[in-house]
Each structure stands twice: as C-alpha cells, then as structure tokens.
Design a protein around this nucleic acid. Structure first.
Lengths: 112, 112
DNA sequence: TTGACAGGCATAGCGTAACTAGGTATAGAT
DNA sequence: ATCTATACCTAGTTACGCTATGCCTGTCAA
C-alpha cells in the first residue's frame, strides 16, 4: 500500500461502497478507484477487502450484480443499488455521523 | 450494553483514552465514565475493552500507572500521560482527522 | 450485622472485518 | 512475445473491541 494512503476504518467500507453506487452502477475495480479519487487519494481499498465486501453486499441484497463489459472492453460485474441498499446506507450514515459527532465532542469539547 | 449507546469505532479507543488523560491523571473506571459523559452518553466503553487497552498503553509507554486511593476510598490505578503519550496522541488525532475528512468528501462531495 | 449493590481491576475466548499473499485471466502496447 | 494495467476471487492472518467471567472492597439499607 502506498505510504500516504490509508485503509478505511473498520466498519466504514460497506457504507462507502454503497455511497459511491448511489451515482449509478459501477464495477468493483471502478468502485475502488472512485473511492480513492473522491478521497483525494487518502483512502485506498485493497482488492482483498473489496471483493469480499461486495460478496456480502450481494448476499444482504443491498445491491444486485450483473455481468457485462467495461468501457475498457473487459468482462466485469456491475453493481446496482437496491431499495434495501439505499435504506441501509441511510441508517449507516446516520449512525456514523452520530458516533463521529460524539468523538469530536471528546477530541474538541466545547469548554476544554 | 444500553441500546442507545454504542461501542467506539475500532482504532479510536486508545486515542480517546489518551485524550481524556490530557486533563490530568484518572483511574480506569473514571476514564470510561468521562468518555461516556463527554460524548453525551453516545459512547460506551466496556470493561473488557478498557483494561486491555490500558495495559497496552502502559506497555507502549504512553502513560504511567500508579496505585492510589480514589475519591470513593477504593484502591485504584491512576494513569498519567507521558511525553511519548502526548506525541502519540497528536499523530493519532491528525491521522483520524485526515481519514474523517476523506470519508466526508465521499459522503458529501462538494459537487454531487 | 449481614447482604446487596456499586465501584473497581483483570483475563480468556469470541466475532468481526480488513489486510496480505496468492491465484486466474484478458486487452492493449512495445 | 511479453509486459503492464485492468479485473475478479479466496484462504489465511491479524487487530481489536466485546462477552462472559472472576475477584475484591466500601457503603448503605434491612
């Protein structure tokens, strides 16, 4: 892993994947690239993390997978968010925000 | 665990402990209470997480432990931040902020 | 006075989740 | 022809917080 890129915090990977899928279907490799790019190259998802996470997403019914051909002419699997996936994403983001706020209130309390 | 309290995200526990120790020495039980209170009861640290984390903190030299007596007259171990602990805390907070920013830029990109 | 309860410390084992390391395969470029 | 980037997948490891459990001691009510 490049030394100035970090892995995502445990518990956030699936949320991030579902979030980038909100723009429209993507294949796995493109999902990792999108997260890398959107995060200004701070976040890096390893393939050994990505594909198991996608399997779980399919299994949970948060996205549907469909084999197709990429813009670079390769056989790829496109993932499309389901309504259940959208709903799950919303609750995940809400929980994440709640916890993040709580951590901020410890790192930077109103009155130190 | 109370259902409206959550565990801390993996990777943040030691940072939070060191942070509350910046105000001055505390014993273990009080550390957990402080984090709970400062987070408006959102974050809950279980004892099975707390004490192993404190062991690691001692081992790494981020704090020193000293046995004493609590305000409630019980034998307790007070933890005091070391210079190394302060330094480690600073880098942990910096990394955390960097990643948190990156995640925000995916959850809420400037242009959607 | 004794028993429950809260405060307080500690560890073994578990579960979750991301990572390392390895494998397979193909399109396009040199 | 072979190298590189693209693309998918899995087994095993590791990190880390949690559950469950055990132990001890003040305080307070019955």
């Amino acid at each position: 892993m490049p030394e100035d890129s970090l892995g995502v915090p445990p518990g956030t990977l699936i949320m991030l994947i579902l979030r980038v899928l909100q723009h429209g279907p993507l294949h796995g490799y493109a999902i990792a690239q999108r997260i890398h790019a959107l995060s200004a190259a701070v976040l890096q998802i390893e393939e050994g993390s990505l594909y198991p996470a996608l399997q779980k997403i399919l299994l949970k019914g948060w996205a549907e997978g469909e084999w197709g051909v990429s813009e670079t002419n390769r056989k790829v699997r496109f993932y499309q968010l389901t309504p259940a996936g959208r709903k799950h994403l919303a609750t995940e983001v809400a929980d994440y925000d709640r916890v993040t706020q709580a951590i901020q209130s410890i790192l930077r309390p109103a009155r130190s």
